[in-house]
Simulated scan of single mutants.
Amino acid sequence: MSIRIQGVSKNFGSFQALADVSLDVPSGSLLALLGPSGSGKTTLLRIIAGLEVADRGTVLHHDENITEYEARDRKVGFVFQHYALFRHMTIAENIGYGLRVRGVPKQERQVRVDELLKLIRLDGLGSRYPAQLSGGQRQRVALARALAARPNVLLLDEPFGALDAKVRTELRQWLRKLHEEIQVTSVFVTHDQEEAFEVADHVVIMNEGRIEQVGTPAEVFERPANAFVMDFLGNVNVFHGRVERGRAVVSGLTVAYPDYPHPEARDAAVYVRPHELEVERSPTEAGSLAAKVLHVNPTGSRTKVELRALDSNQLINVELTPERLTELGLKSGDTVHVAPRRVRVFVPDYEI
C-alpha cells in the first residue's frame, strides 16, 4: 500500500471531523473521497498531507510512519480548489517555484518546467501570467506545480469545484489520461458523484467523519453497503414497508429478501432508482402500484416522469427511454401501473 491510515480521529472543538478512520490507498491508484459537506473528506486529505495533525491514529507511507513529519518532509504534492498561483510570477516561474526553494539549479529547473508545460499542454505559454489564462488552464498549472518536485503522492482538494460544468468535464477526462501516463498515487476530494465515478479507480464514501463504503465505482453503485450510500448516490425512490420470512412487503408489492428469514416483522426501506422502474398501462401479474402521471419532462436520452401513487399519495420518479415513452404515449393525468425491475432493501439502524 502507498498510504495506510490507521484509526485516525480529529476534533475541532466539540465537532468531530473524523472518528477512528482507517483506509488503505493502493500504490499507483487514483482514489476519490466522496461525501456531503462536513463528512470529513478534506480533513482526512489534509492529515495525509501534514497540513492538519490528527488527535489520534497513524499515517504510514510504504510502511514508514510519517504521522509526525512536517508537510514539507512528506513528499506530497497538493492542489487546491482555487489554484493559489502567484499572480506576479509567470506560469513557468509558478511551476518552478518549489524547485527554486529547494535549491535546484536553474538549468535543471528549466528542463523540468518545460517537461511539465508539455505534459499539461501549455508548452509555449510559460512566459504568460495567471491572469492571462482561463480557469481550466490555471488549474492545470497548479497541478504541474504540485508535480514539479516528483512527489510520491498527489493530493487534490475539490480541484475542479471553481470551474464551470463544461471545463470540469474536459479536465476530468484530461486528469484521467494524465494519471494513466504518470501513475502517481493520487487522492482527490469531491462531492460530485459523476466526477468521482468517471475519474477514480476506487471510491471512498464518507459521512459524519466515518467511512461508509470503499470499492470500485461499479461496486459502490451496484452494491451500496447501506441506506446512506444508496441515498447519496443520486435520485432514488424510497418505499417504506416491512420485512419478514424472507420477503419485503411494500404498498401491496412483495419482493424477495432472503437476508431476513425471521418470522418477526421489522420495518424496512425499499430503494429503487428511477431507471429501474417499469411503467405499464395495465396491472402486471407480479404486482404493481397504480399511479397518476403528474408531469412528463423529456431530457435528451432519458425522459423523466413524475407520478403520484394512488393508494399512498407518494411521489414516484421514473426515467424512460424516448422509445418507451412513445410506446406508452404518456401525458399528464393518465393512470398507469409501476413495477420495479430491481430493488435494494435495507433494514435501517438509523433514519437518513
Score class of each variant (00 low, 15 high):
residue 2 S to W: 07
residue 5 I to K: 10
residue 6 Q to K: 15
residue 10 K to Y: 11
residue 10 K to C: 08
residue 25 V to N: 06
residue 28 G to K: 11
residue 33 L to D: 01
residue 36 P to M: 03
residue 42 T to I: 14
residue 45 L to Y: 14
residue 46 R to T: 03
residue 47 I to G: 07
residue 48 I to E: 01
residue 51 L to C: 09
residue 52 E to V: 05
residue 52 E to Q: 12
residue 53 V to F: 03
residue 55 D to C: 07
residue 55 D to V: 08
residue 56 R to G: 07
residue 56 R to A: 14
residue 57 G to D: 09
residue 58 T to V: 13
residue 61 H to F: 14
residue 74 R to P: 01
residue 80 F to D: 00
residue 84 A to Q: 05
residue 86 F to T: 02
residue 97 Y to M: 05
residue 97 Y to A: 02
residue 101 V to T: 13
residue 105 P to S: 11
residue 121 R to G: 08
residue 123 D to N: 09
residue 124 G to R: 12
residue 127 S to M: 08
residue 129 Y to A: 13
residue 130 P to Y: 03
residue 131 A to C: 08
residue 133 L to M: 10
residue 133 L to Q: 07
residue 144 A to C: 14
residue 149 A to W: 13
residue 150 R to N: 15
residue 156 L to E: 02
residue 156 L to V: 12
residue 163 L to W: 00
residue 164 D to Y: 04
residue 168 R to P: 00
residue 170 E to V: 07
residue 173 Q to A: 15
residue 178 L to G: 13
residue 179 H to F: 12
residue 181 E to H: 10
residue 182 I to Q: 02
residue 182 I to W: 02
residue 183 Q to V: 10
residue 184 V to L: 05
residue 189 V to L: 01
residue 189 V to P: 00
residue 192 D to H: 09
residue 192 D to L: 07
residue 199 V to Y: 00
residue 200 A to M: 04
residue 211 I to P: 08
residue 211 I to M: 04
residue 218 A to S: 12
residue 218 A to R: 09
residue 221 F to T: 05
residue 221 F to A: 09
residue 225 A to M: 02
residue 225 A to F: 03
residue 231 D to S: 11
residue 234 G to Y: 03
residue 236 V to K: 06
residue 237 N to P: 07
residue 239 F to H: 07
residue 241 G to H: 02
residue 241 G to L: 04
residue 242 R to A: 09
residue 242 R to L: 06
residue 243 V to K: 03
residue 246 G to D: 10
residue 249 V to F: 15
residue 250 V to H: 07
residue 251 S to G: 10
residue 252 G to Y: 00
residue 253 L to N: 05
residue 258 P to V: 12
residue 262 H to V: 08
residue 263 P to L: 08
residue 263 P to N: 11
residue 266 R to P: 00
residue 272 V to H: 05
residue 272 V to D: 04
residue 275 H to F: 03
residue 277 L to G: 01
residue 281 R to F: 04
residue 286 A to N: 10
residue 292 K to L: 14
residue 292 K to A: 14
residue 294 L to T: 08
residue 298 P to Q: 02
residue 299 T to E: 14
residue 304 K to M: 06
residue 306 E to S: 12
residue 312 S to A: 02
residue 313 N to K: 04
residue 319 E to S: 10
residue 322 P to E: 02
residue 322 P to S: 10
residue 324 R to A: 14
residue 325 L to M: 14
residue 327 E to Y: 14
residue 337 H to C: 04
residue 345 V to M: 04
